[in-house]
Design a protein around this nucleic acid. Structure first.
Length: 422
RNA sequence: GGAGCGAUGGCUGAGUUGGUCUAAGGCGCACGAUUGGAAAUCGUGUUCAGGCUAAUACCCUGACGAGAGUUCGAAUCUCUCUCGCUCCGCCA
């Protein structure tokens, strides 16, 4: 959510930002008109309330002095009805203003390249080199099924499409990846969190999944809970409605969770393999920082995420998302993309974003610069560190051998107690 | 699922025969005094949001878990909901 005062003061900034995002235009002038009416009406209501408050105080004094207060009470009765009617109108306007504010995306940072889509993302750097295979590499779903470590058919039977059953060494490899990621990050000053996999509506609103993207999440029937689409939601909401102390910042968390996404609108895309699942594992990194530190933190967070790919010796690259590809809540995002032989290209495996105060304003996460100072909004950041399912796929493909076996990456051997999966 | 109790500021904790209550006291914190310096002590101050505004000044409005109601007036009375605790039941 953006600062309404900032929009009032500089509507052009918002108009320009929306143009850069190439999204459907938000009608800024219509918004400003409603907001103007809201403020006028609010002033009117407050004035009437001030009258009622002072007269009510008079009534108390007169009643004590045994004077007649019936006339005043009658006058206040009708004033009360007036106030009630105006407040109903005011609430409606407030709801309109809120609905608008909750659906405006964040303003991209000035360093974000302008563009219309992911084709305009800018490559920043690469790590490792795609392996030159002496044989024709197979996709991970073929290798996985042949080794009987991935079972899509039975997942389809017991649940449905876009689910997968991991078996034997596949399940173990998945577990090894999670443990390795957590050990790396928790060993570098990220406090480990094991969050709930369901959250309430306020949490989903706090990080920006609601109200605009309700169809992307799974709601739990009979409750007001949602399955988390990412651990970002519970971990960023950990400090919702809190005022932190400056000395506590930056706060750095890492956490593993399963993630659930409806993948509405992606029918037909990535239908084979582990790339696009309704349920997938991920280790997430989250930071809360002072505003002036957030862009340095974004660089660091991205490096921290990259480290596990380097550890696994997986070829990857880092791209800066263009304004057209930037997510709703983010001001700036770096994607980490891993080399996927079956796709013949780099595939997103992590998304590292600075949300500035966009989520903090929604979730009311603040801090005091010095004891007694006025609370200010923190900046929030997060990044995958990294997606586990896609890592599993990348390992299977990049570490495959001519005979269809998979060599276990060096750093995972201590977790696996095996050299290869065959 | 059943019964009972509770939710107040950064924290703790009064206030529930409705009326100068944003709300005592304490802790914490800030500033000052004291001190060679510190501790201790003393004094003063210290909620947040919105509106107005050049203003983080003044003034006005709102907020005592959330929402609705009664009333001239609600932390206080009524209803609904959420969360927490205790006991019972069930259960990995």
């Amino acid at each position: 959510m953006l600062d309404i005062k900032r929009i009032r003061k500089n509507p052009q900034e918002l108009i320009d930002a929306m143009a850069k995002r190439r999204g459907k235009g938000v009608d800024v002038s219509a918004f400003l008109e409603i907001e103007e009416r809201r403020r006028k009406l609010m002033a009117e209501v407050e004035e009437k309330k001030a009258t009622r408050n002072s007269v009510s105080a008079d009534i108390a004094i007169k009643a004590k002095a045994k004077e007649d207060t019936e006339a005043l009470k009658a006058a206040m009765r009708s004033l009360g009805e007036e106030i009630k009617a105006l407040e109903t109108e005011l609430n409606a306007l407030q709801a309109e203003v809120d609905a608008f504010l909750y659906r405006i995306p964040n303003i991209p940072h000035e360093s974000v390249p302008e563009g219309s889509s992911d084709e305009d993302n800018v490559e920043l750097r690469r790590g490792g080199t795609p392996r030159a295979f002496a044989f024709t590499p197979k996709p991970h779903w073929e290798l996985g099924e042949a080794l009987d470590i991935l079972d899509f058919a039975r997942a389809g039977k017991i649940t449905g499409s876009r689910f997968c059953v991991l078996k034997g060494a596949g399940a173990k490899l998945n577990r090894a990846i999670i443990s390795y990621f957590l050990d790396v990050h928790a060993g570098r000053d990220y406090h480990e969190i094991a969050p709930p996999y369901m959250v309430n509506r306020a949490s989903m609103t706090g990080t920006g999944q609601l109200p605009k993207f309700a169809e992307d999440s799974f709601a739990v029937s009979g409750t007001d809970y949602f399955l988390i689409p990412t651990a970002e939601v519970p971990i960023t909401n950990l400090h919702r409605d809190e005022i932190l102390q400056a000395a506590e910042l930056p706060i750095r968390y890492c956490g593993y969770s399963a993630n659930f996404r409806s993948e509405a609108g992606s029918a037909g895309r990535d239908t084979r393999g582990l790339i696009r699942m309704h349920q997938f594992d991920k280790v997430e990194l989250v930071q809360y920082t002072k505003p002036e530190d957030s862009y340095a933190a974004l660089e660091q967070l991205t490096r921290d995420a990259e480290q596990v790919l380097q550890g696994l010796c997986l070829p990857y690259r880092v791209v800066t998302l263009s304004t057209g590809d930037l997510g709703f809540s983010a001001a700036k995002t770096y994607d980490l993309e891993v080399w996927m032989p079956s796709y013949g290209r780099y595939v997103e495996i992590s998304s590292c974003s600075n949300f500035e105060d966009f989520q903090a304003r929604r979730a009311q996460i603040r801090f005091r610069r010095t004891p007694g100072a006025k609370p200010e909004l923190v900046h929030t950041l997060n990044g995958s560190g990294v997606a586990v399912g896609r890592t599993l796929a990348a390992i299977i493909e990049n570490y495959q051998n001519a005979d269809g076996s998979i060599t276990v990456p060096e750093v995972l051997k201590p977790y696996m107690n095996m050299e290869r999966i065959q």
